[in-house]
Amino acid sequence: MASSNSVLLKVEGLEKRFGGIIALADYDVEIRPGELVGLIGPNGAGKTTVFNLLSGVLKPNQGRIVFNGQDITRLRPDQNAALGIARTFQNIRIFKELSVIDNVKVAFHIRMGHGFWKTLMHTSDYRYSENEMEQKSHEILELFDLEAIKDQPAKNLPYGIQRRVEIARAMATMPKLLLLDEPSAGLNTGETDELVKTLRKIHDTYGLTIFIVEHDMKLIMTICQRIQVIDRGRMLSTGTPEDVRHDQRVIEAYLGKSGHGKQYAQG
């Protein structure tokens, strides 16, 4: 892991407006290499907007995103992916008609894929990279326990496994920062437990930096070292799970000014 005072991702004063609506304002975050940071907030708080801005799917109206010392504010998603930002989506976006292994192989294209002419000429470095992709894909599938179903079209798989395929696919881009957008959405308890195990495994195995948006309080409280809370496009609170759990503003944002909030937040 890199020294703790270096910063992998630094965001300053990020703002996004859709027409007259301010989806996100004055958003800051700093993530150090190897950290596991959570982002929570009620529905419509702007969590997914943050991820869309960080991955380059949306461009901010104001503010700056610096990744690994480089200003990436205006870059496209594929350029961000090349620099080492991978993401998953709230409503799974796997390649349905492709097999599980092909889903993963697509992600290797950016690191070792070749263009049209080399493919056509069947050059030796083309053959080498196709073999390499095959092998690396098996390694990833092994790690995520997907090897047995590698030839199945992704659309035939249960929801929980599709999630896992999506995370495996993101990992195949060999990211420095993994953005997970509500990875437990739509999963049952068993599947969520599996997910937590998987996340722990990749965090431990690769020392990977993970930024995670979640609805499931219990999940985020157990795995994150640091948590940010946003509400209606604005930062509300930030700190350790313990700090956030007892922050009166957070409790109010989730449940209004009522005593039940505390219980809910404790999950």
Binding site: S55, G56, V57, R76, P77, D78, N80, A81, A82, A86, R87, F89, R93, I94, F95, K96, E97, L98, D102, K105, V106, A107, F108, H109, I110, R111, M112, G113, H114, G115, F116, T119, S129, E130, M133, R169, A170, T173
Partner: peptide
């Protein structure tokens, strides 16, 4: 690999782009 990147665009262009 080249063709798989084409197929991925057909399946979901946003996901394809986020994978590089």
């Amino acid at each position: 690999s080249y063709g798989r990147s084409m197929l991925s665009i057909r399946e979901d262009d946003m996901a394809a782009q986020c994978l590089g």
